[in-house]
Design a binder for these strands. Structure first.
Lengths: 313, 313
DNA sequence: CTGAAAGCGCTTACAG
DNA sequence: CTGAAAGCGCTTACAG
């Protein structure tokens, strides 16, 4: 690879001057600038960001942690975050953890060693130490759709799960359902617990409680759309019909939820926008060398489609 | 952040010695090693990979380009690649391009400037310059599921699309279909053309030709599963039934394809394994400072499920 | 407006 | 077995 020095030599100037034109530093004579730019063009010079990072103490890269890239909600969120990072000149180191504590530790270590400027996390294992590991190194982190985010240093972009689950239960209750169950996430994600709690509270207000999946529920509220779709698959393979025999709800409103053959009743969340906003907050904090320490909670709409219906008599 | 120097000072040795114990260089006295390790532990030292990269001329990171993170096939492939990279101590810079030439250029530039050791590409726009941009910089690239990969320097992990489309057409033909159409990818991906070609050739062998989507086909072969699922959605919203009125096939066999409500007839491909293998080839080449220049073609099984049936009378 | 010099945090011969 | 020194490719005061 060619270096600054190569273009300096070819243009007949010093490395400092080349650096000045590249960084757009004002004090460079017009003719010098042109000469340097021509040299850059001729030898196809591309600055070495690694060298720059070392000096600047900023890697110009952000870390993104997602439990499961294969879940469209997480993929959309990561994609939104990545796009926003790119737009600001940052590259994105993305790693998926399958909510495994061990993989999370490895990812944290890799991010620390590579000196990422900040990180956004779309989900972690229950009781994960990942955020603390990063925060303790003064790396700003914002968590999106997360569950209990108790560390005050965290940035949080989240959904109001409690309200959302109240909407879900109100809807099901109105359809006559009295035997309901919550089904947690496929992976051991921390966010599962808060939705379970919201569900339980909403039932409690109506003098009901979770009958569990074994308790012949007439309605099942799944932790997210992917889980809801898996539940429908299982029920229907067992010969039950959704929603005739059992109603099912999701959470996230992934594109597939509105597919003609799925038509899932779910809670809407704007994954891409959450990703974009998370990066905005994280980069802002990184640039000012502080933690984010700020939370933003949005409450999602309930989208009623065709997987919920009147409770069977 | 603490540096090598901090631990050297605390352990009362030189930076060289600390470096030697960290890198596991043999010639270090046992007691010295212990002293250094204790110091590292006490001040929680983590090496700066950026500095190491600068000296070593290897960034220990790989680039991954995917057109659409939201497509489970690409997500799986990227996840498999990412996992394999991590297992070898590499981090993964992932960027999604939406098959936009402009974004592809930006990604290539970012990868070059960050000196990624190699890149794996799961799809590009038609006629994309992305691979050449990288190859010309002596960066090994392997393309997976790609379409026409004409550059001999490329590594290629691919499916035998021609054979696969022959299987698809044979299956449909046997069910009595004579009016068939191919539907290309949602994004302008290069891989679309080869599947279209295989489809056309298979029809031609039977004295048929593509009637196009407007030609009232009784069977539609989609470029991939996501497109097939979108086609089913569209058809059924227009009041047609799949497969009663129209049969539909996909390609990839994403997890959703086997869902009870989808049951898509499709061609199986092992995305995660393709990703793993792609990284293996790319890293091997990177370590030897050469291009991959090697191709591996697998032919996928046709999985017959419930979106294909006898042609309507 | 331009260049010499120091330094970012490592690694790597090389001496001792 | 250990350390001093040079160098990876940049940036950034500072002189001139």
């Amino acid at each position: 690879m060619t270096t600054l020095f190569d273009v300096a030599r070819r243009a007949g100037v010093s490395k400092s001057t080349v650096s000045n034109v590249i960084r757009g530093d004002g004090r460079v004579a017009e003719t010098t600038r042109e000469r340097v730019e021509r040299a850059i063009e001729e030898i196809q010079y591309r600055p070495n960001v690694i060298a720059r990072s070392l000096k600047a103490r900023s890697s110009m890269t952000i870390g993104i942690i997602v439990p499961d890239l294969t879940n469209p909600f997480h993929a959309e969120l990561a994609a939104g975050a990545e796009r926003a990072a790119n737009a600001s000149g940052y590259a994105a180191l993305i790693t998926h953890t399958e909510a495994s504590p061990h993989t999370e530790q490895d990812a944290a270590r890799a991010f620390i060693e590579r000196r990422v400027d900040c990180v956004v996390v779309t989900g972690v294992s229950v009781g994960s130490s990942l955020p603390a590991l990063l925060l303790d190194r003064e790396i700003p982190v914002v968590v999106a759709s997360f569950g209990e985010a108790d560390d005050p240093r965290l940035g949080v972009i989240d959904n109001d799960d409690l309200t959302a689950m109240e909407l879900v239960v109100a809807h099901l209750f109105e359809l006559g359902h009295r035997r309901m169950a919550f089904v947690g996430p496929l992976l051991l994600e921390q966010s599962g617990e808060r939705r379970r709690l919201g569900f339980a509270q909403a039932l409690h207000r109506r003098g009901l409680q979770d009958v569990g999946i074994g308790g012949k529920p007439t309605a099942i509220a799944a932790h997210n759309d992917m889980q809801a779709i898996a539940v429908i698959d299982r029920l229907e393979r067992e010969g039950q019909k959704v929603p005739r025999d059992v109603s099912v709800t999701g959470y996230d409103d992934i594109p597939l939820a509105s597919h003609n053959r799925i038509q899932l009743t779910t809670v809407h969340a704007d994954a891409a926008e959450m990703g974009r906003r998370a990066v905005e907050l994280a980069l802002g904090a990184a640039r000012e060398s502080r933690h984010v320490a700020y939370r933003e909670i949005q409450t999602g709409q309930l989208i009623v489609r065709a997987t919920t219906g009147r409770a069977p008599a």
